[in-house]
Design a protein around this nucleic acid. Sequence first.
DNA 1: TTGACTCAACATCCTTTGCTACAA
DNA 2: TTGTAGGTTTCCATGTTGAGTCA
Length: 446
Amino acid sequence: MTTLSFEDGTIRVDDPPDGLSLPFLESDPRSGTTRAPAFRYAALTDVLDGRDDAYDDRVGTWGSLSLSTAYELRDYQREALEAWQANHHRGVIELPTGAGKTVVAIGAMVARGVPTLVVVPTVDLLTQWRRELAAEFDVEIGQFGGGVQEQGPITVSTYDSAYLRADDVGGDFGFVVFDEVHHLGGEGYRDIARLLAAPARMGLTATFERPDGAHEVVAELVGPRVFALDVDDLSGDHLADYDIKRIEVGLSAAEREAYDEAQETFVDYLRTSNLDMRSGADYQKLVMRSGNDPRAREALLAKQRARRVMMNADAKVDRLAEILDRHRDDRVIVFTAHTDLVYRLSERFLLPAITNETGAAERRELLDRFRTGTYSRVVTANVLDEGVDVPDANVAVVLSGSGSEREFTQRLGRILRPKADGRRALLYEVVTEETAEENVAARRRG
DNA sequence: TTGACTCAACATCCTTTGCTACAA
DNA sequence: TTGTAGGTTTCCATGTTGAGTCA
C-alpha cells in the first residue's frame, strides 16, 4: 500500500500508486523512494483522495487540540478569518499595525484545533506571542529561539530557529502561522515553509508586496493574499485619524557644494559608462561593477556621500528644534536613517536614543519609561520599525529614511493607536529640497 | 545566567535620457 | 499608435537581528 511519511523536510512516498505522476514528485534513486517537498503534502493528499487510492498517511498524525478563546472578533477580523478559511486554510492577511493580527491567528487556531507553529522575526515578538498565547490557551506553549529549544503543542519560533529546526520538526504541526510574513521571501527563510508539512498556513503582515517581487514566492508557499485593509480603511474607527505634514528644508552653501560635487561624480559615471539607472536591479549592476572597476567604486562612494549630506542636513536639525518646541506636551518619536544622526540629536536635545547598539536591558527600561510617561520623546534609526512593542505616541518625525514603502508604513503605524481623547496623530516628513531625497520620499509614499 | 564577541542573513541601494520589443 | 515592460553571473556601505562561542 502507498505510504506517506515525513522525512527530513520531505514527504516520502513508498509504493506510489500506478500512473501517479505529479510535477513535484521526484524519484530519489539513492534511497529508492519517491519524494515531494514537505509543503506539497496538502496537494499530494488532495490528489490521492481524488483518485480513491487507499494510502497509509503517517504524516498527518499530529492529533487535535481543544482550544477556546474569550476574544470577540471585530467585523473585519472575522471577515479576514472567513476569507482565509474559504481559501482552504491558506493565505496571507494584510492588516495595518495595531489592527489585531494576533487575534485573527488565535481565531484560526481555535478553528483548526491542531498543533501549531508560530514563526516570528524577533525574540521580542516571540516573547509577546508566547505571553498572549499562554494567557489565552490552556496548553503548554513551546519556544524555539532566544536560547530555548522546547517544543509544545503550540510552539513559537524565530525565523532563524525555524530554519534550523524545520527539517526535524516539520511533520509535527498541522498549522503554521508566519508573523510578518514578508520576511519569508528572503532567500534562506523561504526554505522554512518548504520543509514544513502543515497543510493549514497563514501569513500576517502590514505590507505584503516586496519591491523584489518575492511576495510571489510567499504566495506559492503560504497562499495568496486573501484579505487586505490598509491604514485608511481603519483610521477614525479602529485606528487614530492622522495627518502627514511635509516640510522642505534647504542645504547650506557648504552642504550644497558637497552634495553637487558628489552627485556630479555619480551622474558623470552613469553618462560615460552606458549604465541606465532605472531600477534597483540597475543599481545592483553598478555594485557588481564596483568590485573590479575603480571608477564604478568611486561613483558608488560618491553617491553615498551625497545621500549622507542630504539626509543629515543641518537645516533638518533646526527644524526638529521647532517641532519639538511646538509639541512640548506630546509624545514624539523621531526617526532617522543613520545612527550618527541619532546620537547627534540625542546630545543636542537630550533625547533618549535607541539604536542597534542599545542593549536589551537598557532598551526595555527606556521603552518602559516612555510608556509610563517619564520620557515623552525618543529618537531612533530603524530599531523601532518592526518587531518591537512600542508604547503609543501621537507625533512622529521622519527626519530621514529609505525609499521603502514598508518602512514608511511601519513608522506611521507607530502613532496610530486610537487616542483616548480622540486626538489626531501627526507625522512630519522632513525632506531636503532639490536633492534626490524628493524622489526617495515619493517612492516610499507609493 | 550574563556579557562581549563573531558571524551570517536580510534589507536598502534609483537619473531624467534614450532604445527596443511587444502588447493593447 | 501609444504605452509599458524590458533582463542578470558572488556584493561598495550601513543598519539591524539571531545564533553560537567563550570566558
